[in-house]
Design a protein around this nucleic acid. Structure first.
Lengths: 229, 229
DNA sequence: GTAACTTAGTGTAATATATACACTATTGGA
DNA sequence: TCCAATAGTGTATATATTACACTAAGTTAC
């Protein structure tokens, strides 16, 4: 069975830039291609959009099929439509950015048996298609975003220490932050809830745990608070 | 002649949200549909992406064909892919935002004879498809953007007064700004070049004209200046 | 030609925000 | 019990933002 159209149509795909925080590195999840073109090269997880699913649903489905991830935070990044970006035929791709708690998502064997692995951003393998460009845009976007939204809670465990949060900001912004000023600022936003718990199994003074308070965040947003770090 | 594919494919379109500044109003350019569906309703200018043109090229071409505008500032907004957004068949649209100097672009009769007209944002006609949603997103985006980028020079004549610039900011942000503080701030950004000219044909003291200095803007960006108003 | 009208253009003081900076507290392990 | 490691804390200074009102210059109407 084939489908016929009066004019030629581009194929439509989605690709996901999945960021995960691994101790002191921001990593990105890639899969190794097992088919032509770019066979053996690494690529962003993604695939074709079905005729009866939304773009976001397609991104979630592909992510699940190729990497076993689900229920991740997803945000549309940009749509790439250079004419020759896929050597086979015209393919337009809607790129998405996902943030995941790497601790929650140890990489499972992908369900369709392709290799999936986390790579540090400064140690990437050769990528297929225009995926270097997509990845670069995702990185720029997350850097810009972290400045005016308390993003990044998606990347940390649900309970985290202020040092972990600061380290995350330092990794994304790629510069050192002053500990006292960072704490002062982040606490003044009033979107964290201090817990009656401290971290366990550390061989030094244990740090207080915090949790992100979404409802307080929404309130602050409405009041127009400036989240710039 | 028909084109055949193994799987069904969505049609791919572009739509443009064209903002123009008209004295004291931010307006948007719409065209009246002359064909089914939504015949007679107003819609964003746009149309199908050809197989051999980029998304941006498609947006520029449609804008030219439907409204006679060219050489406008264009920026990708978002891609809309709800399954039923077009009643005929699956259509995914890549939306773009354009900013134009309304003074440069008095609406010509559109080349394909459809009516095109500027509408104030608070006095819109009924719109086709999910265009209300697209327009709303464009408005939110431009409001956010004006805060951290000296945008809006695209909307003004090349030579403009500080009062015109302030009025533009007030329209986009939808709040009054203090004249002295606005001037202090905008001049401190050091991206305007003061000209040896004043406005003509006004029945009161003539204001000094300024021009946006792109190369200084680039320098400031690199130095990491904060453009927030 | 002068008074009235209209918009341009200007500075300062008060307040809020951001930055720079170094020591004590707590816990685990040797 | 001492050492190692990280948590946790405050203050003074610099910078940025805000609030606020008058004089300047050109045009028009009398």
């Amino acid at each position: 069975m084939t489908f016929r159209y009066k004019y030629p149509r581009a194929a439509l795909t989605v690709d996901c830039v999945v960021f995960g925080l691994d101790a002191n590195d921001l990593k990105v999840l890639l899969i190794q291609r097992d088919i032509h073109p770019y066979r053996g090269k690494w690529a962003l997880p993604g695939g074709f959009v079905r005729i009866d699913e939304t773009l976001e649903a397609a991104a979630r489905r592909e992510l699940w099929e190729e990497t076993g991830l689900d229920k991740v935070y997803l945000e549309q990044l940009y749509t790439f439509g250079a004419v020759e970006r896929d050597p086979r035929e015209r393919v337009v791709t809607v790129a998405w950015t996902a943030l995941v708690r790497l601790s929650d998502h140890r990489v499972k064997a992908a369900t369709d048996a392709r290799a999936a692995a986390w790579f540090a951003l400064d140690d990437l393998p050769e990528l297929a298609f225009d995926h270097p460009q997509i990845l670069r845009m995702a990185q720029v976007r997350i850097q810009a975003k972290v400045r005016y939204q308390p993003i990044g809670f998606e990347l940390l465990p649900k309970k985290f220490t202020l040092t972990q949060l600061q380290t995350l900001y330092e990794i994304i912004l790629n510069r050192r932050l002053d500990k006292r000023n960072f704490r002062k600022k982040i606490l003044s936003l009033d979107v964290l809830r201090e817990l009656d718990e401290v971290e366990a199994n550390v061989s030094h003074r244990a740090a207080r745990l915090f949790r992100f308070d979404v409802s307080r965040y929404r309130q602050r947003l409405q009041e127009g608070v400036n989240f710039e770090i």
